[in-house]
Amino acid sequence: MKIAIITLLVLGFIHQDPGTDASSIIKKVDDNMISNTQISITKMIIHGRRNSRTVASKNYAEGTEKSYTEYLSPAREEGTKMLKLEDNLWIYSPSTDRTIQLSGHMLRQSVMGSDLSYEDMMEDRKLTEVYNAQKIGQETINGRKTWVLELHAKVDDASYESQKLWIDQERFVPLRQEMYAKSGKLLKRAEASDVKRVDGRWYPMKMNYKDVLKEGKGTDFVITDIQFDVKIPEYIFSKASLKR
């Protein structure tokens, strides 16, 4: 009896607050994580079998469909640029002065030896566009209370049929993300930490991304500087800017 009352109360509470149902949670996540424009400087730390490497880059993004990356270090990578416009990806290398377009099979390759493929990087749809969400519980991660959401693809061509997200209840930042195969097998896991407030948004400054089928420690992303909603000149997102 007691349990029933508590359940009712909890259910009532959830129902009463329109801001905390699953779909509005992921909408808030999308709103928080995706800005009109974004300029960042990031470090990618790749843990190889032999050594770990750090690759630094400056990234420009407009919405989810346009992005431009220029690698800053190490010396071998310096000046390499990557441009993504919707489904197309171009890479420019200063050493050969060539722009190469990647497609098909190549997009499934890992980026810079990381646990991310080009395709992973090119996924540009908002969560709300791809998934239906359902709240399945609450958990605490690193002292932060989170909603646990289960996402199921509502479109045919999602890379991952389902995902599990742990969303910070106050800041609407996903602190953990698990990506599953159609069969329900866990494929990839991302963990976010060091959440900071930047330009009125909460944003994770550290991420670890891991292909769980593969051995290894995964790939770390560290944001050293990030700005939201700043004006980015249109030429940045053109092929001409690659050779600049």
Binding site: I46, G48, N51, R53, V55, R76, E77, T80, I91, S93, S95, T96, R98, I100, Q109, S110, V111, M112, G113, S114
Partner: peptide, 16 residues
Amino acid sequence: VTYFGTSMNGSMTFAN
């Protein structure tokens, strides 16, 4: 022609 691939360290690499 340009070779595009992955270096020993996993970086993108190019060569003409």
